[in-house]
């Protein structure tokens, strides 16, 4: 009628098993002593808080971990990211976008929760960008 599929941008089963599992048992959730880069970002409007730790070796992510508090979506998406982004080159990380995160989550996230879903990836990209600038 108006071109918007309200069911699609609504809550397409956001709280599916894989997301709940990563929220309950986050992977790579630890502070990293030998990180070469770390960065913390907060979604002020909702209180999601993620700190990313990266160890870069030869232009690749040799180790990746995070610490944080926040909603299930932000924490699960960051947990999944730490699993999948390990081993990627910095160039490969730089071009990752929301579709990559949707792929990890297995669901397209609507506008109301998009910032939650992308917090981990945005933090990682900012951390790497900031590091390459200096």
């Amino acid at each position: 009628m108006n071109g918007i599929d309200h069911d699609r941008i609504g809550r397409a089963d956001l709280y599916r098993q894989n997301i709940l599992d990563h929220n309950r048992s986050p992977r790579n959730r630890r502070r990293m002593d030998d990180a070469t880069i770390s960065r913390r970002e907060v979604n002020m409007s909702c209180g999601d808080d993620v700190e990313i730790f990266v160890r870069v070796e030869d232009g690749r992510i040799a180790d990746l971990s995070f610490d944080g508090i926040g909603c299930a979506i932000s924490q699960a998406a960051t947990s999944m990211l730490t699993e999948k982004a390990k081993g990627l080159t910095l160039e490969e990380v730089a071009v990752l976008d929301r579709s990559f995160v949707f792929g990890l989550l297995g669901v397209e996230v609507g506008p109301a929760r998009l910032k939650c879903a992308l917090l981990g990836l945005e933090t990682l990209k900012k951390a790497l960008r900031e590091n390459s600038d200096t």
Binding site: R11, L14, Y15, M44, S45, C46, D48, I73, A112, C116
Partner: peptide
């Protein structure tokens, strides 16, 4: 349980509430 997760799941059940700081961040 984070309030956004709570409000989101309530919304899926047709229970319309609001999760967040309610424009009162210093209070929160």
């Amino acid at each position: 349980i984070h309030p956004h997760d709570m409000a989101d799941i309530l919304g899926g059940e047709g229970v319309c509430t609001r999760g967040g700081h309610h424009c009162a961040m210093p209070l929160m």
